[in-house]
Design a protein around this nucleic acid. Structure first.
Length: 818
RNA sequence: GCCGAGGUGGUGGAACUGGUAGACACAAGGGACUUAAAAUCCCUCGGUAGAAAUACUGUACGGGUUCGACUCCCGUCCUCGGUACCA
């Protein structure tokens, strides 16, 4: 048993054995409690990077740990296979994207398998397969029937290099999330899904997600951006037209001194028709891309339109201005300006010498309204019949007055907008719609689904090749039978990733999007693990989709919940030299090289040990070697298993050894149960390994304790380094293969100590330790402390004022000079 | 600006519910084995003073609560992540 640790051999052997025995498959028919562990599936770029490795090692540790606790675990994997990189590669290599995608999948599958991840490969899915996207098309047609999916002309974000529109969520600081090019606003007819109908539920259900990081919940809450206030209608002077505004501060309505509209507002355009200067100004505003709209640098600018509005309560005339800080995309594209109580309005009023009228006074103290805006709530002044009311009451009173007089109403405004799902791209799921000159946009009937994407087209970089594919484009209207055309846009790829977690429960179902029985067994996902970069995009859409599927009657909220992911772990990034790994920086680490040199187990161990899961992980080659060294050290523990000497039992040493073993079990288990602190779990096992290394097993009980320790170590290492653990287990003659062995339970008897070490403090400072009977009371402990030389000198000449005993931990003696 | 997370040795990081700060590991230094190297093993490793025992000091900074604070409270500074003329 003294041969070297040969990672490559061992890993090949066990991977083959696991595969042959099918131990990683989830059982659909099983009495065990089920547990669904899911990692975010990869885009098949062709190469596994360290971020993937970290993600999947975390997931695998969880899945294996749960299996060892007797759960029937679903741990699937698949491919988020539609998307732009495939088209770009297709252009470059002049091969259809399907070919590139499937070749990459084959390559990455090999890489994943080499890591020894315990996936149920029988459930593998690729979203570009018609058997998958068929059901996405099916659901979409249901949504069309319900009016939840619709086509509309709107100002949308267009990315030129990507040659497609983008959803709001895909615009990051005014630029395309994928290629970082500033987006252009275009007015186009596009397909949307009415996520705003679910805004309230998406917001309210965030409270149910107690297994999610606060950070992600906060980000989603901000994204949905609910604000309550009132809509107020201002009539335009000399006209029947009105200008609608939304405000969160109806209590300040009496302080309105002017109005401001966005440059893109119809009223601004109308005013510009007769005003060259204003037209120039609008032109200037439209050129400013959102990205450049830097708060610090961008000056507040405006220009009067010449229109005046009538204050709904006082009847006073207030001028209407165009202002570059008013956004057409939020609320109504127009605001009422209350310079006395809004910083922005205040600055603007100063610049253009507009009047400031204070209508809110602080509850206590004074406020110099000429110096700055007072933005707090307070008490109303200068507000006629509303004078004296505190802000909250005034909001209700003023909104009530407006409603009664038909000039406004209470209103809730969301920042969230409907999800734009159509893309002018080829490599995506076809939108199942047929455009008929007579019948309009007709959903493709169920029996004609899926609308299969032709996979042999060659993209060129411009418009989608679907436009030129007559066989795809021309069809007959399902309603009237006349010649008609297919919709040529495809779905946003976030559509596919929004429901894959549910599809995994019945990945081959040809009868339904998901099987209700399988959903009831597995859904929702117990533990979801992935990068925090999806906090808003994917995780919001997936939550939405789960509700859509529920409301389509595919499953019930009683059985599957209203939310797809019960617990979420957002892993940190993998860094090298303090920054994100990237090809352009040349600081990437190839997982393949690490595996070839040290084996998969070493790679796994290091990624789990070097940092807590949610923190960033700094790659460190020396650290990898350290992880490998640890495995070699554990391996060498095998040597002593049979070679123990036959001397006398050393009862005290054995007892201590067993105590170490069983406290380690408790520590490791605790680390797993509290936030998957794998780095701590591994550290505890390193300590056990060190203790075993220093232990000289003598006699029968010594041998037994030693073997027990090595066996416990092999078992508890299984979720992290499964091949290594299995080989150890086999060599130890363990009954079960290590990865299926029951998780060890600490033997309470072994934890018992007759004598304990108590830390003794005087005035809260550590002054020594005493060894004392475990049940010793305060008096006994105090007596022992007083008898201890090192402690006694701190008590000499002192009067004991107070004694605090923390059982099993410490004794604190409070004294004062006698 | 707002929201969130955080600030502990040379480094990554431990420390339960307020109870021995720095576990575990990396790096560094010293030593053993070796003809030599690799591998392996042993020792030291927050700061100051000391040969040592030990003492003082130390968890961003300033206060506070407590017998006792990395942990709780108040204030300040800084870092990171998210988000933003959101009306």
């Amino acid at each position: 048993m003294s041969e070297r640790y040969e990672a490559q051999e061992i890993e090949a052997k066990w991977q083959q054995q696991w595969h042959a025995s099918g131990i990683d498959a989830a059982c659909d028919d099983d009495d065990r409690e089920s547990y669904y562990c899911l990692v975010m599936f990869p885009y098949p770029s062709g190469n596994l990077h360290m971020g993937h490795v970290r993600n999947y090692c975390l997931g695998d540790a969880v899945a294996r740990y749960k299996r060892m606790h007797g759960f029937n675990v679903l741990h699937p994997i698949g491919w988020d296979a539609f998307g732009l990189p495939a088209e770009n590669a297709a252009i470059k290599h002049k091969r259809p994207p399907a070919e590139w995608t499937y070749a990459n999948i084959d390559q990455m599958r090999v890489q994943l398998k080499r890591l020894g991840l315990s996936y149920d490969w029988s459930r593998e899915i690729a979203t570009c397969h018609p058997g998958y996207y068929r059901w996405e098309q099916w659901l979409f047609t249901r949504l069309m029937e319900k009016g939840l999916a619709y086509q509309a002309r709107a100002e949308v974000n267009w990315c030129d290099p990507c040659h497609t529109v983008l959803a709001n969520e895909q615009v990051v600081e005014g630029a395309c999330w994928r290629c970082d090019t500033p987006v252009i606003r275009k007015n186009l007819k596009q397909w949307f899904i009415r996520i705003t109908d679910y805004a309230e539920e998406l917001l309210a259900d965030l409270d149910k997600l107690d297994g999610w990081p606060e950070k992600v919940i906060g980000m989603q809450r901000n994204w949905i951006g609910k604000s309550s206030g009132a809509e107020v209608s201002f009539r335009l002077e000399g006209s029947d037209e009105t200008l609608e505004v939304f405000t969160t501060r109806p209590d300040t309505l009496m302080g309105v001194t002017y109005m401001a509209v966005a440059a893109a507002h119809p009223l601004a355009k109308k005013a510009a028709e007769a005003n060259i200067d204003l037209a120039d100004f609008l032109e200037e505003c439209s050129k400013i891309s959102t990205k450049e709209a830097d708060v610090e640098t961008m000056e507040k600018k405006g220009m009067a339109t010449g229109f005046n509005a009538v204050h709904p309560i006082t009847g006073a005339s207030v001028p209407v201005w165009v202002a570059n800080f008013v956004l057409m995309g939020y609320g109504t594209g127009a605001v009422m300006s209350v310079p006395a109580h809004d910083v922005r309005d205040f600055d603007f009023a100063r610049k253009y010498d507009l009047p400031v009228k204070q209508v809110i006074a602080p509850e206590t103290g004074d406020w110099d309204i000429t110096a700055a805006a007072f933005t707090e709530q307070g008490q109303l002044i200068n507000s006629a019949q509303f004078d004296g009311l505190p802000s909250p009451d005034a909001k209700a009173a003023i909104t009530g007055w407006l409603a009664k007089n038909g000039k406004g109403s209470e209103r809730v405004q969301y920042r969230l907008r409907d999800w734009l799902v159509s893309r002018q791209r080829y490599w995506g799921a076809p939108i199942p719609v047929i455009h008929c000159a007579d019948c309009g946009a007709v959903p493709v009937p169920d029996e004609q689904l899926p609308v299969v994407l032709p996979t042999d087209l060659q993209p060129t970089g411009g418009a989608s090749p679907l436009n030129d594919c007559a066989a795809f484009r021309h069809t007959d209207c399902p309603r009237c039978g006349k010649p008609a055309e297919r919709e040529l846009d495809t779905f946003d790829t976030f559509m596919e990733s929004s429901w894959y977690m549910n599809r995994y429960t019945s990945p081959r179902s040809a009868d339904a999007m998901v099987d209700a029985g399988d959903m009831a067994r597995w859904a929702p996902v117990d533990q979801y693990i992935g990068g925090v970069e999806h906090a808003v995009l994917h995780l919001l859409y997936a939550r939405f989709y789960h509700k859509l599927m529920r409301d389509a009657g595919l499953f019930t909220s009683e059985q599957c919940g209203d939310e797809p992911f019960k617990n979420l772990l957002t892993q940190g990034m993998v860094l090298k030299d303090g920054t994100k790994m990237s090809k352009s920086k040349g600081n990437t680490v190839d997982p393949k090289a690490i595996i070839e040199r040290f084996g998969a187990d070493t790679a796994r161990l290091f990624t789990l040990f070097a940092a807590p899961p949610e923190k960033e992980l700094e790659w460190n080659d020396a650290g990898v070697e350290g992880a490998h060294r640890f495995l070699k050290r554990v391996w060498r523990l095998l040597e002593k298993v049979d070679a123990a000497s036959d001397g006398d039992d050393d009862a005290a040493a054995v007892k201590l050894m067993r105590r170490t073993i069983h406290t380690t079990i408790e520590r490791v288990t605790h680390a797993f149960e509290h936030g998957f602190a794998f780095n701590v779990a591994i550290a505890a096992q390193m300590e056990l390994a060190n203790a075993l290394q220093d232990f000289l097993p003598q006699g029968q009980s010594g041998k037994a304790a030693y073997r027990e320790g090595v066996q416990v170590l092999a078992t508890m290492l299984a979720p992290f380094v499964p091949h290594f653990a299995c080989e150890m287990g086999e060599r130890l003659g363990m009954e079960q293969v290590a990865v299926l062995a029951p998780w060890p339970v600490a033997d309470q008897a072994a934890l018992e100590q007759d004598e304990i070490t108590l830390v003794v403090q005087v005035q809260g400072k550590k002054r020594g330790e005493i060894v004392i009977g475990k049940d010793a009371g305060q008096d006994e402990a105090l007596a022992a402390a007083q008898a201890d030389y090192a402690i006694h000198k701190w008590l000499d000449g002192m009067q004991i004022v107070k004694v605090i005993l923390v059982p099993g931990r410490l004794l604190n003696i409070v004294v004062k000079p006698a």
